[in-house]
Design a protein around this nucleic acid. Structure first.
Length: 298
DNA sequence: CATTGTTTATTGATGA
DNA sequence: TCATCAATAAACAATG
């Protein structure tokens, strides 16, 4: 309809949710992790649409980072000064968008899916004291595992089930669903094919494009034409190495149930929403989740 | 003080 | 129609 011409995204909102945009940015970085500011930059450089109303969408994006378990925070190391942490994709976040639509996931990714932690009862009288050095040790391993996962390598280290990250270990040749290879390889199963993309502006060459043209552009897999989607990239986070340790956003996730259940929290029959769903479901807080106040005042 | 991060609430869209 | 997901707003804490 509006026929955007070459400037495809200039006036239209890209067919990606903040989650996919963020995942895109993270995946595009060599280290598979980015500070918030670089995520902003990635998006604004590629999608002119987001060069406006920055406070608005950035607030939304930060909300998504915190709210969604598919993003994990990775603290900076002392030798990497700066504000804020790095953000990475939870290695087990799976094919969040395997339905082909980057606007709406099949299901929200949640860590600690199935069982609430009866094993770790909040002691009568004391909140669970987080063991500091234990964390450091485990995080060292988790870092390795996360990095391996992020690098599409099998994880050689037996990772304890703590934080659920243990379950990320992919036995053979795990490729992160957001990896470029994956996006390319996977047959894009969108009902209706390209029709799912609004307007000719989103037309993409052959079967390559439908997923993330901008990422492709970055990798040089696409024609330079696609520079039209955004400005040329410059290396984000150049020269970063092993920033730090993956840290679950919600440390409230207690030691998991079955140490041998690789998919325990991945596909566990019950998605166990952190609180059955979003607040609007009106469901009371999940057990163990401190709710600010049970006063349903409205 | 600005940025970053967390949380709650509301609303609209979408899928089953 | 209902349940869930996503976008948005807003308040607030933490941090450099």
């Amino acid at each position: 309809m509006p026929r955007p011409g070459r400037n495809t995204y200039s006036d239209q909102k890209p067919p990606y949710s903040y989650i996919s945009l963020t995942a895109m940015a993270i995946q595009s970085s060599p280290e598979k992790m980015l500070p918030l500011s670089d995520i902003y930059r990635f998006i604004t450089e590629r999608f002119p649409f987001y060069r406006e109303n920055a406070p608005r969408w950035q607030n939304s994006l930060r909300h998504n980072l915190s709210f969604n378990d598919c993003f994990i925070k990775i603290p900076r190391r002392p030798d990497q000064p700066g504000k804020g942490s790095f953000w990475a994709l939870h290695p087990a976040c799976g094919d969040m968008f395997e339905n082909g639509s980057f606007l709406r996931r099949r299901k929200r990714f949640k860590v600690g899916g199935a069982a609430p932690p009866p094993a770790a009862p909040l002691g009568p009288g004391g909140p669970p004291p987080p063991p500091p050095h234990y964390l450091q040790q485990q995080q060292a391993k988790l870092r390795i595992s996360a990095l391996h996962a992020a690098a599409h390598l099998p994880v050689p280290v037996p990772v304890p089930a703590g934080y659920g990250l243990g379950a990320v270990t992919q036995p053979s040749g795990f490729k992160h669903p957001f990896a470029i290879e994956n996006i390319i390889a996977r047959e894009y199963k969108v009902p209706g094919g390209l029709a799912a993309f609004p307007g000719p502006g989103y037309a993409l060459p052959g079967q390559l494009g439908p997923a993330w043209p901008h990422v492709y552009a970055h990798t040089g897999l696409l024609e330079p034409d696609y520079a039209a989607y955004g400005a040329p990239l410059k290396p984000l986070c150049a020269g970063q190495t092993l920033p730090a340790v993956p840290v679950p956003i919600k440390p409230a996730v207690p030691a998991l149930h079955a140490p041998h259940a690789p998919h325990a929290f991945l596909a566990a029959g019950s998605p166990r929403p952190r609180s059955p769903a979003s607040p609007q479901t009106g469901s009371p807080a999940a057990p163990g989740e401190p709710l600010q106040s049970t006063v349903p005042v409205h």
